[in-house]
């Protein structure tokens, strides 16, 4: 009944090494099928992310919180907060 929606999560700044994902490709990121209506927090937990509070998440140019609802075809970028030059 709950139709599946496909999303992709890209991990940067060394997070993919922490999650020990094998043959992780920076361009495509991690493709996942998530039941509709689920929040980002649920998706991250299934990806094996322990404490995810202080990471930064972006979707199509805007920054989103872990409680944001996921929509079909989303591309979420996840990285540690960083300062510039």
């Amino acid at each position: 009944m709950a139709n599946e929606i496909a999303i992709r999560i890209k991990f940067f700044s060394g997070i993919d090494r922490e999650l020990k994902l094998e043959n992780y490709n920076h361009e495509q990121g991690l493709a996942m099928n998530v039941p509709a209506g689920k929040r980002l927090k649920w998706a991250l937990r299934t990806a094996g992310m322990p404490a995810f509070s202080n990471h930064a998440y972006f979707r199509s140019g805007e920054r989103i919180s872990t409680r944001a609802k996921l929509r079909n075809g989303d591309e979420v970028t996840c990285l540690k907060p960083s300062g510039g030059g």
């Binding site: 700044s13 060394g14 202080n54 972006f58 140019g61 970028t77 540690k80 960083s82 300062g83 510039g84």
Partner: peptide
């Protein structure tokens, strides 16, 4: 997390991805 995390491991250039996505 900023001064000890991304700066220490990747330097000032760690902001590239964040700025690129926005």
């Amino acid at each position: 997390p900023v001064t000890s995390g991304t700066y220490r491991s990747f330097g000032t250039n760690s902001a590239t991805i964040a700025c690129n996505t926005t």
